[in-house]
Amino acid sequence: MPRPRRADPASLQTLAGRTMGTTWTLRLDNPRMIALDAVRACAQDALDRVVAQMSTWEPDSDISRFNRSGAGSRHVLEPEFAEVLACALRWAAASDGAIDPSIGPLVALWGFGAQADASVAGPPSPAELSRVRERVGWQRVALDPATRSIVQPGGAALDLSGVAKGFAVDRVAAALRALGLCDFLIEVGGELRAAGRRPDGDPWQVLVEALPGTTHRVALDGLSIATSGDRWHAREHQGRRWSHTLDPRTGEPVGHALASVTVLHPECMQADALATVLTVLGPEDGLAFARRHGLAALFVRRDGEGHCTFISDRWPTPALAA
C-alpha cells in the first residue's frame, strides 16, 4: 500500500485524524500561514460529509436509509453520492460487472462490512449464495442523472467502499484548494492525492510496495494513487482463506493469483474504482483492461512461494527505494 516518502522537508506542516474506520494524514506547504485548526476543520468536514452520505457503518447515512427502504421507493441523492454511484456504474458497464455498487448483500454474506453476521464463521452454502445473488446486479440500480435519483428495486443494498474512499480524498483536495492551499499531499487509508509541489520544487513522492520487502519510489505530479488486493483484509475458516475482494459476477471471493493492484490516475475516485476492477479481473484480463483503457497499473502476483510484478505500459519507470 502506498505511503509518503520520509524525505519530505521538515518545514512541511502535518495534520492527521480518523475517518471511515481508518486514518487520514495531510502534509502541506502553508506559505500564507492559514491557521492549522481551520485546515483541520476543512479536511474533516469534507470527510464527514462523505461518511454521512455513503458509510454503511452509519445507520443514519443516506446509503443505509436507501438499503433499508422498501421496494419502489425513490431517493434523491446528494451530488456527491450521485457522482460516486455514477462512477461505479460506469466501470461496472465497462468491465461487465467486475465492480458492482449493489454488492452489499454479498459482502455481508462472506463476513465483511457493517452488516456481516458475526455468528457465521465459515463460507456460505451454495443455497445461501444463490439466494443472495438474486439481490445483486448493477443493472438493477438505475440512476436518473437529470433528477439525481434512484429507485429501490427491492432488497438492493449498495456498498460504495470500492470508490468512496478515493472520492473522499478528492473532496478533501477540493476543499483545501478552496481554502487557498496549493501544495499538499492528502492520504486516507492508503489512498493518496498530490497537488502542487514540495517546498524544494520536487514533486510529491510515495513508496509503493512492489514485492514484500521491496518498495519503489513514485512521483505523484498532480496524480492520485490507490491500491486494492487481498494482502491486508481476509478471513480464514478451517484452512480456507478468502479475500474481502469479491467477484460480483460469481458471488465469490476472487480466486486468482493476484495479490494487489496499484493504479495511478489524476482522480483518486477513479484510481480507487479501477484498482478494484483490475483486482477482480485478475492478471491476464486485468492487464488487458488496463492497456485497453490506457491505465497506469502495477500488478503483484503470487508466484509459487514468492511474488512477481508486472506493469501496464503507462506505469512510470520505477526508481528502487533505499
Rank of each mutant, 00 (worst) to 15 (best):
residue 1 M to S: 14
residue 5 R to F: 09
residue 7 A to W: 06
residue 9 P to R: 13
residue 9 P to V: 13
residue 10 A to K: 15
residue 14 T to I: 05
residue 17 G to E: 02
residue 17 G to Y: 06
residue 23 T to E: 03
residue 27 R to T: 04
residue 28 L to K: 06
residue 37 D to A: 12
residue 51 V to L: 13
residue 51 V to G: 14
residue 52 A to E: 12
residue 63 I to L: 00
residue 66 F to T: 00
residue 66 F to A: 00
residue 70 G to V: 06
residue 79 P to R: 01
residue 79 P to C: 01
residue 80 E to V: 02
residue 88 A to F: 08
residue 96 D to P: 08
residue 97 G to F: 12
residue 99 I to N: 10
residue 99 I to Q: 07
residue 99 I to E: 05
residue 100 D to I: 14
residue 108 A to F: 07
residue 109 L to Q: 11
residue 110 W to L: 10
residue 114 A to Q: 12
residue 116 A to M: 03
residue 117 D to R: 15
residue 118 A to D: 10
residue 121 A to G: 07
residue 123 P to K: 00
residue 124 P to S: 15
residue 126 P to L: 03
residue 130 S to K: 06
residue 130 S to Q: 12
residue 138 W to D: 01
residue 142 A to E: 13
residue 144 D to T: 09
residue 146 A to C: 14
residue 155 G to S: 11
residue 171 R to V: 04
residue 182 C to V: 02
residue 190 G to Q: 08
residue 194 A to L: 11
residue 196 G to Y: 15
residue 204 W to T: 12
residue 208 V to H: 07
residue 224 S to T: 06
residue 227 T to R: 10
residue 231 R to L: 08
residue 235 R to Q: 03
residue 240 R to H: 14
residue 243 S to M: 08
residue 253 P to E: 07
residue 266 P to I: 11
residue 268 C to E: 11
residue 272 D to W: 12
residue 273 A to Q: 10
residue 275 A to G: 03
residue 275 A to H: 07
residue 282 G to K: 14
residue 283 P to V: 02
residue 285 D to A: 15
residue 288 A to K: 01
residue 304 G to T: 11
residue 311 I to D: 06
residue 312 S to P: 02
residue 316 P to Y: 07
residue 317 T to P: 00
residue 319 A to K: 08
